[in-house]
């Protein structure tokens, strides 16, 4: 099987505490893998480690992405190589118009890849086309990035960035948190529109609900820093019924 990302025996710690204790995952191009698990099982740590956050220290194991050693790359290099993380809590940047941020990000990635910057008209056309699909209005693009955005607007903005940056590998970190059912549908449609034969996704969620809309090829259960069970999309339904109790979590 061709592999886009291969994670082998990955151990990582935060603030001296080991959180990931030997993760193995092999993700082929075009596949959508869901990671489920109780709070504190290491789901968000995994997404932060893959994106290259400073405070997350890999102590053992390897991650190869398109045949390259991902762990040696700076966060911005990973981004340019095609890793995208949709944040659970997108950050606010006061005074920077969303449009300006989008353009800066696209051109920064293009520069890193040795491509020409997008001209302003070309960029505007591109943004208009993608934002229409997600129901993002011009007015929102003029507002400072995420400042005063509702939960739904923030997540739609994340998916808009994903659509514009056209990453090879998308990590969705609890994208369903803070969304009502209508917003969840819009965001899921946006994500589904980006699914294709080449693009892979890692969908991290606590609840099965999201997976009704973004249907995964594989589901993995993470518990205490390890993948304890893997299966098809039906595994999520089973978890919905039985909860995470048997995976060492409180009933909550």
């Amino acid at each position: 099987m061709k592999s886009l990302m291969k994670i082998e025996n990955l151990h990582a710690e935060v603030g001296g505490k080991e959180i990931l204790k030997g993760i193995n995952l092999n993700i082929a191009p075009g596949q959508v893998h869901a990671i489920m698990g109780p709070n504190g099982s290491g789901k968000s740590t995994l997404s932060n480690v893959l994106a290259g956050r400073d405070d997350y220290v890999v102590t053992k194991g390897s991650v190869s992405f398109m045949g390259e050693n991902l762990l040696e790359m700076a966060p911005e290099e990973r981004a340019a190589a095609g890793i995208f993380l949709a944040f659970q809590y997108p950050l606010e940047i006061p005074g920077v118009a969303t449009m300006t941020f989008l353009k800066t990000a696209i051109n920064a990635q293009r520069k890193t890849r040795g491509e020409d910057e997008l001209s302003t008209p070309a960029f505007m056309r591109f943004v208009r086309e993608k934002s229409a699909l997600l129901g993002v209005k011009d007015e929102m693009l003029k507002r400072p990035l995420n400042v005063g955005f509702s939960g739904g607007e923030k997540k739609r903005n994340e998916i808009l960035q994903m659509a514009l940056l056209e990453p090879a590998f998308c990590i969705l970190d609890e994208t369903d948190s803070g969304l009502d059912i209508d917003a969840l549908k819009v965001v899921s449609e946006g994500v589904n529109a980006l699914r294709d034969k080449e693009r892979s996704m890692l969908v991290i969620t606590h609840y099965q609900r999201l997976l009704d809309y973004i249907v995964p090829d594989f589901v993995h259960v993470l518990s205490n820093g390890r993948v304890v069970r893997s299966g098809g999309k039906d595994l999520a339904l089973e978890l919905e019924k039985s909860g995470y109790a048997e995976y060492g979590a409180d009933a909550a």
Binding site: A79, I93, T104, I106, L165
Partner: peptide, 17 residues
């Protein structure tokens, strides 16, 4: 914040940018 910097870097900007 470190969070803001990381967010920007995840989108492809280096730290100085």
């Amino acid at each position: 914040s470190d969070d803001q910097l990381f967010y920007c870097r995840q989108r492809g900007l280096n730290e100085e940018e």
